[in-house]
Design a protein around this nucleic acid. Structure first.
Lengths: 120, 120
DNA sequence: CGGAATCCCTTTCGATACTG
DNA sequence: CAGTATCGAAAGGGATTCCG
């Protein structure tokens, strides 16, 4: 058994699930993989995320050490989010998750469909 | 965008998170990786899981096609759970999750401790 | 033996409005 | 520009009891 930050886990994989589980975390990490992004640009990239949720997910990713929040002391304010070194190491794992997901849905072809956008 | 079973996803990895997120799913899958297990043996292996939760997680894994529930029409009843072919394909991915988890907690050595068991 | 049913609490998430 | 604050709904999970 593993005790980490006052929680008990049976496998380190359970810790990782906690790191990336959250409505927008994967989407955020995938965007940051292309390079640093400003807050409002993230809002534009994830139009269905409420401001509250986006901020919450960013705060969790930051406090878990996966991303870095950089504040530029200018006016108007400028805040940029970027992957940390730890966050960059996530890449191959996220890729495997995608790969299995793709394999998985191919087992259920008539339950899948694709759309370019979903306008709320 | 991907539509799968009436849900919208931005990446197939988000689907996978849904498959394995749940209090006991990882633990169940890890045990089943050693071979088929009966219901009450799972209860013994996961003493902290309530009967209700264990049953719920098993039902989800089964309806998602990752495990197979085999009922033997004998008395007393005998039910065995086993990995499906899809479930067996999870192995390398789960291993990567473990690996990243191990790497991750090594970045925070003084927030980790280990115990053999946790007796409720 | 292998569950299902009920009740309740906690966490997560959405909608909306406001701010330095 | 980049957030907070407040309220309430929904989903996840625990405790307990009952059943074929």
């Amino acid at each position: 058994m593993i005790n980490f930050r006052n929680e008990t886990y049976r496998c380190t994989s359970e810790i990782v699930l906690g790191l990336i589980s959250g409505k927008w975390k994967i989407a955020i990490l995938n965007h940051l993989a292309q390079g640093p992004v400003r807050y409002n640009e993230l809002r534009r990239l994830l139009p269905e995320a409420t401001q509250r949720m986006l901020t919450m997910q960013l705060k969790m990713l930051e406090s878990d050490g996966l991303i870095i929040r950089k504040v530029y002391p200018v006016s108007p304010p400028k805040v940029e989010y970027d992957l940390s070194e730890l966050g960059k190491q996530l890449a191959p794992m996220l890729l495997m998750l995608c790969d299995f997901g793709t394999t998985y849905i191919e087992s259920y072809p008539n339950e899948v469909s694709y759309t370019n956008h979903k306008h709320a």
